[in-house]
Amino acid sequence: MFEASLAQSAILKKVLDAIKDLLNEANFECTDDGIKVQAMDNSHVSLVSLELRSDGFEKYRCDRNLSMGVNLASMAKIMRCSSNSDKVTIKAQDDNPDKVSFIFESSNQERISDYEMKLMDIDADQLGIPDTEYSCVVKMPSAEFARICKDLNQFGESLVISCSKEGIKFSTSGDLGSANVKLAQTTDADKDDAVTIEMRSPVTLTFACRYLNHFTKATPLSSQVQLSMSDEIPLLVEYRIGDMGCIKYYLAPKIDD
């Protein structure tokens, strides 16, 4: 038996919006600790790692570890049937379920709807991600990061990110011309609009702008985003999901051919 309830379906809707364009399907690994999803996009360039801890749920029960193979477009269709303020309960009866139920309850309890979704067998390898001490860790407003990725995507396919003690710079160029956005470190680190940089050594890396734009679908989840970078290894883009977990995106860099 698996059962997990969230007071408001809005969080789950936002989480799904943050992954459904990058992934077609994924295994939801449910344990006593919570729900984890790890999956690569079809081209094996980026990876999504989602964690929702059990203590962040209003109610959570997982008698046996189970893996639910989910078609994310199907789950998104079902989640769209809920109102943001609805309480949502995810329920699977068996230890090896072939279907999962979503129950939505309005705040006044006057409307209760349930949707059953068929699960899939997904044969996906789990990747081992080594612990890394990154050369630069940048925290910045998530809306600013989204704006930069969207604006610069108009100019070129590749985005160069350079980070030094002075600040972080995003650059691109293409047929139209070139573009640069520089952000300086701010003095007040506690505010939502703060830009903070922890640097061991400066880095310059190139990434496909298209994937960065996919990652920014997580913007509604958190006011801040964290970028962790070291030369010649994948970029880590991290959004917190309140106090209950986080969504991490990894993106392989581009190198000069």
């Binding site: 690569m40 081209s43 094996h44 360039v45 980026s46 990876l47 390898d125 789990q126 990747l127 081992g128 991600i129 080594p130 590749s158 190139t206 496909a208 290894i233 994948p234 990894y250 392989a252 860099p253 581009k254 190198i255 000069d256 051919d257």
Partner: peptide, 14 residues
């Protein structure tokens, strides 16, 4: 011209 690397170059497969 730049070459897009794959994640499998960096992460090990279980």
């Amino acid at each position: 011209n730049s070459l897009q690397l794959e994640l499998l170059t960096f992460f090990c497969q279980h």
